[in-house]
Structures are given as structure tokens and as C-alpha cells.
Design a protein around this nucleic acid. Sequence first.
DNA 1: CAGTTGTGAAACCATTTGGTTTCATTTCAT
DNA 2: ATGAAATGAAACCAAATGGTTTCACAACTG
Lengths: 109, 109
Amino acid sequence: MDTARSNKPDVFQAIADPTRRRLLRLLDEQEMPVTAISGHFTISRTAVSKHLHILADAGLVRERKVGRERRYKLDPEPLLELKRWLAYYERYWENKLSMLKHYVELEEE
Amino acid sequence: MDTARSNKPDVFQAIADPTRRRLLRLLDEQEMPVTAISGHFTISRTAVSKHLHILADAGLVRERKVGRERRYKLDPEPLLELKRWLAYYERYWENKLSMLKHYVELEEE
DNA sequence: CAGTTGTGAAACCATTTGGTTTCATTTCAT
DNA sequence: ATGAAATGAAACCAAATGGTTTCACAACTG
């Protein structure tokens, strides 16, 4: 990790880490400051902070300064890219028959 | 990478790499042997082979021996986990109003 | 003003990751 | 049987990743 590099904010990369997925869930429910957030994890506050920056770089989280706190909140918008990516494969399960057909072909041949 | 460890076949992890996403697309269109596949990439055949094993571990790809070749083909089933994960956030864009409301709230406060 | 709280930046570190090159093995072609 | 083709395993490597500890600083609380 090291530093929060604002280089390649990749959604796929961002959600690859389980801790970050948990963070997204948490911040969907409510906006929270870093210390409160890190109370939900066993890793250090600093580590959580880094994950938050990665999520922010990917646009998955919004940051807002309130006094000395820095509150984070989910921004689901970038997940649309994932949704679009997934949509390509949608035809496989858009109906049970196509799925079945797929498996039959896999088994045969 | 090093070796194809059949430890934690994580879908999120598997699709995090852009090369692997390209592989999935390619193998959706047709079943192919390793050498043919690696013709589509600039990295070495061995590297492609490793990516294929990672995808296979995640269940995203099926392997079939045919003579001296080893043919790979997409198995989209594990993508359903991703779809389910994504479904949680679905309410945000299930209608334009909820999305709009979300952004307004983000801007306000 | 003095002290405490909330947070990020830096410097480190071990492990994982994506790649390469080399070698061994299996299967096909002659 | 002999050689070429298709592929995985091994050993190795540089860079990225996820963590930690320490330090500095801004902003509240007395």
C-alpha cells in the first residue's frame, strides 16, 4: 500500500479486497468518521484510513471534513461499471434454459 | 503468482486483473487451447497459463484435455456471486429518483 | 494557553503478485 | 524410434499490496 496514490482508481481492484467490501457495506448504512469506522475492524486505524483512500480514489466513497473529523460515505456510482461489465454475461442466466444449455455443452463434447 | 495454489479461489480477486478479464471474454466466445489463447496477448504463454489456472481455481474457467492440448472455456457460474453482491446496491439505481436523492444528500449536509 | 482527540504522511516490512526463463513430460507426426 | 509441439512446474525477480509504528498537525475542551 504505502501511500494513497491517486493513479489508477480501478473499481475491480478496489473491491477485490474483503476489508474494502466490508467498508462499503458499513458506509452504505451511515456516514462515519475514521475512528468510528476502524472500531469495526481489528486492523489499525491507519490501515483502515489507507483502505478508505483507495476507495475514495476509485470514487466509491466520499469524504467530508467536519471539524477535526473526516466523515466517509458510500458513493455507489462506480459500481455501475461493474454492473455493465457483468451485463455482458447476463444472457447466461437470463433464463434457466440458456444456463442449462451451457452446462450440457460443457459436459458433452 | 509462482504456483497455481488451489487455496482461496476468490471471484473478486480473479476478476481484479485486466488480463484475466480479457481472458474471460475471449473464452466466452470459444473454447481454446493455451497456445492459441496466448497468441492474443503480449505476455508469455507461461504467464497466460498461470492466469488460466487462477481462473480455473475460481471456477470461472473449465479445462479439458484433448490430445496434447488443454482447452479452456468460460464457466460464468461464479459470476453469480458477484451479481448477488452487486444486487445489494441495486436499490440505488433501480430508479432514477433514488439515485438523484442520493446525490442531493451527498451534496447537502 | 495546555492538553487531548482525530487524522494523514512517512518510513518500514513481509507477503503476494505478475512476469520471465529454463527444464521435464506427454502426445503427435514421420 | 526420433523429433517437434503443447503444456505445466520450478526457480527466480521486481513491484505492488496490506500492514505496522512513529511523528506532525489541526481542531476541540478545559
